[in-house]
Structures are given as structure tokens and as C-alpha cells.
């Protein structure tokens, strides 16, 4: 060992945070910029629009989406509980809360699909039938922003389902929490984006 003198020394290896977590934070920075591009465009288009912007309540089904928002916030809570259970080595808790998060996420997606179908098939827009992405800037921005958010939820649900299957195989535990924590970071981010989108698209 050429470096015997330094063998006992704690090596400098960057942050005191494990690599996957750093990677997820870095990736989320990029995601922030992606949504900033979409949301920024929405703001510019909405405030630059020549016509008055449609009132959300007259086009969109706000109550059902408010319920959906509640579901997603609950799923963040269960995600936190899943991580806490993993840290405590509580196998039953890991399974229950990961499954709960997955189901809440999947329900959110289901409600969003229902909402889209209703809008496209039954909602009227400026005298014609069907509210689609081609329905002016309102339709374009609505479907683009919520659609890309939904795509992110879908990716999250797929990863959550995979994590849940692994939970049943006893993969997670007090000595193996990183995957759940990193997935949780992503999930909370998706949740946070939704709270912003819900506010600016459905409420104001």
C-alpha cells in the first residue's frame, strides 16, 4: 500500500450526501427549468392575450380537480410515512404507505383522464362542441401544462409501483432507504408543481 500513511484518513468525497440524492436534486433543477419554460410561456401568453381570458370555473370542473389536488397532497404525506417506516425498519408500514402512495397517484391520474375525456367530448367552447388543445390559447396552455404534469405523475406512479413490488419482496429496510428517499424527492416535486398549476390554471 503506497498510501498507507493516509489509509486511516476519512477521504474527501464531496458532500456528506449520497450520490443518488445529489443526482436527484440536480435533475430536479432541470425539471424546474422545464416547468418554468411552460409556466412562463403561459404567463406571457395570458397577459398578452388580446381577448379576455376565460373564467376557469366556466370551462373546467374545479371542484373535482380540487378533490384531486387533495389526493395528491395526501400522497405526499403517505410518501413521507413510507420513508419514516423504512428508516424505522417497519416492513408493514413500508408496504402499506408505498401502496397507498401508488394508489393515490394512480387515482389522481384516473381523475385527470376522466376530466380530459369530459372536456374533449362534452364541454362546449366558444359555441362549438368540445374543448381541445386547439381551443385557443386557453386550451393550448391548459392541456400542455396539465398534460406534462400528468406525464410526470405517470412516471412517478410507475416507479412507485416498482418500489411497492420490491417492498413485498422485503427489499427496503432501515439499511436500505435511499431509493425511497430519492423517489420521495421526485414525488414531492411533482406534488409541488401541481399546487402551483392548480392555483394559476384553476383558481386565478
Amino acid at each position: 500500500m503506497a498510501h498507507a500513511a493516509t489509509a486511516g484518513r476519512v477521504p474527501e468525497r464531496g458532500l456528506d450526501v449520497y450520490t443518488q440524492k445529489v443526482g436527484m436534486w440536480v435533475f430536479l433543477c432541470s425539471e424546474v427549468m422545464f416547468f418554468a419554460g411552460l409556466i412562463g410561456s403561459y404567463v406571457v401568453l395570458r397577459f398578452g392575450a388580446a381577448d379576455t381570458w376565460a373564467v376557469p370555473n366556466e370551462v373546467l370542473n374545479v371542484p373535482i380537480t380540487a378533490f384531486n389536488t387533495f389526493l395528491l397532497i395526501c400522497s405526499s404525506v403517505t410518501m413521507v410515512k413510507a420513508f419514516a417506516a423504512a428508516q424505522a425498519g417497519d416492513q408493514r408500514g413500508i408496504k402499506v404507505y408505498l401502496l397507498g402512495t401508488t394508489l393515490l397517484g394512480a387515482t389522481f391520474l384516473g381523475v385527470q383522464v376522466y376530466e380530459y375525456v369530459e372536456l374533449v367530448l362534452h364541454q362546449s367552447w366558444q359555441g362549438s362542441h368540445g374543448f381541445t388543445p386547439a381551443a385557443g390559447l386557453y386550451g393550448a396552455t391548459f392541456f400542455t401544462m396539465t398534460g406534462f404534469h400528468g406525464f410526470h405523475v405517470l412516471l412517478g406512479v410507475i416507479c412507485l409501483a416498482w418500489a411497492t413490488i420490491r417492498a413485498w419482496r422485503g427489499h427496503w429496510g432501515a439499511d436500505n432507504t435511499h431509493g425511497i428517499e430519492v423517489l420521495g424527492l421526485y414525488w414531492h416535486f411533482v406534488d409541488l408543481v401541481w399546487i402551483i398549476l392548480f392555483t394559476i390554471v384553476y383558481l386565478i
Partner: peptide, 16 residues
Amino acid sequence: SVNYITTTINMRAPGM
């Protein structure tokens, strides 16, 4: 980029 940034932040050799 995620790879390059994470590697640079967290995987430098001891003393780097």
C-alpha cells in the same frame, strides 16, 4: 449533465 455535475460534486478522489 446530471451525471457530470453529480460526479464532480461527489466523486472526487481523496484530496481533490
